[in-house]
């Protein structure tokens, strides 16, 4: 595969968005960062519709998904992705402020690939984002494009 896959960052808080983008910038990934501000925009990108109709970018290498989002929240986006045979192979990382156990349980039930509670300490936060970016965008080998989604 020749094209570099983007990272889809779904985040509604402008401050969290800025901090996360700063952290990702430090990681110096070549991948393009696509930002969606709520669940609807995230799904629009994934299904190439709305503001992302006819997108020329490939599917993302990883979806970094905030839990609490306007309109369609993170858990619902996760559920739709994991229930769609064409999308379910996309890695989804939940990024959340909450340590709430039921969110964790629900996320894993829906098939999340990782669940990260954003650390208060920026240093730790930066490290977490960096590691996530490097792991999913660089190290992780996605399944081959052909045949994906056929195993429904």
């Amino acid at each position: 595969m020749t094209e570099l896959r983007p990272i889809l960052l779904v985040e509604d808080s402008p401050r969290d968005l800025e901090l996360t983008l700063e952290a990702l910038k430090k990681t110096q990934l070549a991948n393009e960062i696509v930002v969606a501000r709520d669940g609807v925009e995230a799904l629009d990108f994934l299904y190439s519709r709305g503001g992302f109709a006819g997108r020329n970018l490939p599917d993302p290498a990883v979806i970094m998904l905030d839990l609490k989002l306007p309109r369609i929240d993170g858990l619902e986006v996760l559920e739709r992705v994991k229930n769609d045979a064409a999308l379910r192979h996309l890695p989804v990382v939940m990024l959340t402020s909450s340590r709430e156990e039921r969110d964790l349980v629900r996320s894993y039930q829906l098939g999340v690939n990782a669940f990260v509670v954003k650390p208060v300490s920026f240093k730790e936060f930066y490290q977490a984002i960096q590691e996530l970016g490097i792991f999913w965008a660089i190290l992780n080998e996605p399944p081959p494009a052909s045949g994906v989604g056929a195993d429904a």
Partner: peptide
């Protein structure tokens, strides 16, 4: 407590983050 864990933690994280920046 659920909303505290979400909404109260976030500003502290932002303070730390922006201070570091």
């Amino acid at each position: 407590s659920y909303s505290i864990s979400h909404d109260l933690r976030a500003p502290f994280r932002h303070i730390v983050g922006y201070a570091e920046l």
